[in-house]
Design a binder for these strands. Structure first.
Lengths: 168, 168
DNA sequence: CATATAATGTAATATCATAACAATTCAAGA
DNA sequence: TCTTGAATTGTTATGATATTACATTATATG
């Protein structure tokens, strides 16, 4: 069973929280992860990751392009996609299939069994990890003789903050 | 021959099963559903649905286009998308976000809590309905104050038949 | 330095999906 | 039957997302 304390790391980020600190922390983790794997977090890749971390939202690839400014020029699409591929490979970024968008991962490395709550209003994304449900899904599929590869669980709806703003 | 009847509605369809019968059955259901709602299952829409039913697979919109032949001509993309929109509205077809493809629904109307097992080999799709897990996901999201809209659960992997073919 | 591998630059193109608007068909009432 | 409004279809163009291909540059290593 999921307790109460376990919710803290997977809640929707409070709109008033310290973005900078949480971004720096995540970048730190990303750098350690890369170092550990001999992967290079180049300036381009880092910029894409920072943009996603700062947004706390799902961004489309072309939105990311727009968000990047290299002395007045925008990167070509393929540049962004390459950075995203790299970051996804390491589990630092996830693709949200249901909205064709990308989001920075809060718990890099432990991509296992994660699901995403996507606010259709503010597009904020909460990443929730609860092995129980993921295991149930995987187990059930395997009981049917299905060899599970990738698991996609995405829940669209309205987050607590937007709900509050709208009708509270 | 096909295995236990009890599993038939949620198992992967046996490659040797009677496609025609199962398609006709589904078309029948679709027609009743439309009649009940005052919706019109026009020839175009019906053709798209039949194509998907016959395929037992997820097909991209442009694959559907290719699969349709109107006296030597192919329908425009928008024609296919319109048919798909109609069919999805009625729950006769589902969109699989993780593979940008569409699949005919085995249990029209009861779209509730369905998840999809998608074979990356033969692209066959099994639709599995188990309210328990869906409810757990929705319940947990709502406990976090999230107002659930749409639920996307898609599992990619290798189906029993392809597994058998590949490694014994 | 030489070399191989990884990363980037650039242009073109493939793939998926929708917008806009005209023409036609259909159902239902006058 | 005629008319009228709504639904459906036809057609063209365009928007949005993603990849291919190939040349160039950077980086690590012997």
């Amino acid at each position: 069973m999921a307790g109460d304390a376990s919710l803290s790391s997977s809640e929707f980020p409070d709109p008033g929280h310290d973005h900078d600190a949480c971004r720096d922390q995540a970048i730190d983790r990303a750098e350690r992860l890369c170092a550990g794997q001999g992967a290079r977090l180049t300036p381009q890749r880092r910029e894409v990751l920072e943009l996603l971390l700062a947004a706390h939202q799902a961004l489309g690839a072309y939105e990311i392009m727009e968000g990047i400014d290299w002395g007045g020029r925008k990167p070509a699409p393929v540049v962004v996609y390459r950075a995203l591929d790299f970051l996804m490979e390491l589990g630092l970024v996830h693709r949200l299939a249901s909205v064709n968008a990308y989001v920075a991962c809060g718990h890099a490395g432990e991509a296992h069994g994660a699901r995403f709550l996507i606010c259709t209003d503010c597009r904020t994304v909460a990443e929730v990890t609860s092995p129980g449900i993921a295991d149930a899904l995987v187990g059930e599929a395997e009981r049917r003789g299905f060899a599970v590869g990738q698991l996609t669980i995405e829940i669209s709806g309205v987050c607590p903050h937007c709900r509050g703003a709208a009708d509270g």
